[in-house]
């Protein structure tokens, strides 16, 4: 097995780049191909973490809460008038009370 193949194997076996085997990291220090690969993967990991930490989280559609609330009222989980009343356990069918209505979007939304 060539050093590059060994490097690829080490990467696949241990995707924690900070714990990449010393030998594999040493190889990347002397091989342009493997150095570029390691650099790219480190960049992807770093940017993905940054994206998760800093991305603005979109609001769900405004009608989502109304749908949830209506369903919970129907099931007796919450009370329509907003009173605070102890909730009684109520047996529900396994399906969770039948199929839920899908949200109907008033405006087209992208699928991606």
């Amino acid at each position: 097995m060539s050093d590059c193949e060994s490097f690829d194997t080490a990467l696949a076996a241990s995707p924690d780049l900070n714990r990449l085997a010393r030998r594999a990291r040493a190889h990347a220090g002397s091989c342009r191909r493997c150095a570029a690969l390691l650099r790219d993967l480190e960049l992807i990991v770093e940017r993905a973490a940054s994206l998760a930490a800093n991305a603005s989280e979109p609001d769900p559609p405004p009608q989502l809460w109304d749908q949830i609330r209506r369903q919970l009222e129907k099931e007796g989980v919450i009370h329509a008038n907003g009173r605070t009343t102890p909730r009684r356990a109520k047996p529900r069918p396994k399906s969770g009370g039948g199929p839920l209505p899908r949200l109907v979007h008033s405006t087209p939304r992208s699928g991606g």
Partner: peptide, 9 residues
């Protein structure tokens, strides 16, 4: 847990 609608909201 008591079924308070505002709490759910």
């Amino acid at each position: 847990k008591q079924g308070d609608a505002e709490a759910f909201a």
